Simulated scan of single mutants.
Amino acid sequence: MAALRGPRAFAPRALARALLWRWRPNPLRRRSDRFEAWIVLAMWLLAVLAGTLAGLWATRSVEENFARERVEWRPVVALLTERAPGTAAGSEHVWAEVRWPAPDGSVHRGQTRVGPGSDPGTPVTVWTDARGHLVTRPATESQASLRAALIGTLVGVSAAVVPLAGGRLAQGFLVRRRLDRWDEEWERVGPQWRWKTG
């Protein structure tokens, strides 16, 4: 029984008391204190709600975009139109011009990275969108999930900052107003104290 009386036994109660101090009855609590308590509560609820909804929306939107890219983007065999710069002994890929047929039958040209020293007419695989324009290789499902989660987290945190900043501005306004009132009261009461002590 002695172990239950230690400081850990009352930790949840003390934590609740510390978090809810603005809501407890107190004869010194002003109307502005209650108003500030509601602002703090609304600020945190809006931050959680806005952050969660914006993060989920962004994640879903990015995942749908990556899924659409995986469906629409196709690999196409392109042919080099010129000799690639460098020598075959080089290990790094170089930029060279290639041409490939578009879905409408027209021939498109662009640049992609190829092995150094490659001869004209060498086939190279490139990725194109539905209109036949060059694009990067689409993200795999795992890459898309990771990117979508990161973007969703960033958007969610950014959206949560807006209500938090608004709440802090409102709190700052209340603090300035409270200080102004204290100054007014001190101007009225201060001279009476000097009179009594003098």
Rank of each mutant, 00 (worst) to 15 (best):
F66M: 11
G55N: 07
S61Q: 13
V94H: 08
G86W: 09
L45K: 06
T59E: 15
M43E: 02
E63N: 08
T112R: 09
L41C: 06
V48S: 11
T81N: 12
T59I: 00
G115D: 05
D33I: 04
R83S: 12
E82L: 13
G51A: 09
D33K: 01
P103R: 07
P103E: 01
A96W: 01
W73Y: 15
R83W: 02
V77D: 08
F66P: 00
W73A: 09
A54T: 05
V71N: 01
P85T: 06
V40E: 00
P116L: 01
V77C: 02
A96G: 05
W95S: 15
E92I: 06
W38P: 00
P85A: 03
V114A: 04
E64V: 02
V71E: 12
E63C: 00
A58M: 11
A84N: 02
D33V: 05
E92S: 11
R34F: 14
R68M: 06
L46K: 09
V40T: 05
F66W: 09
T112V: 15
S61G: 04
W95G: 10
A67P: 01
G110C: 06
P85Q: 05
A89V: 14
R74C: 00
V98N: 05
L53M: 07
T112M: 06
E64W: 07
R70N: 02
T81W: 10
H93G: 13
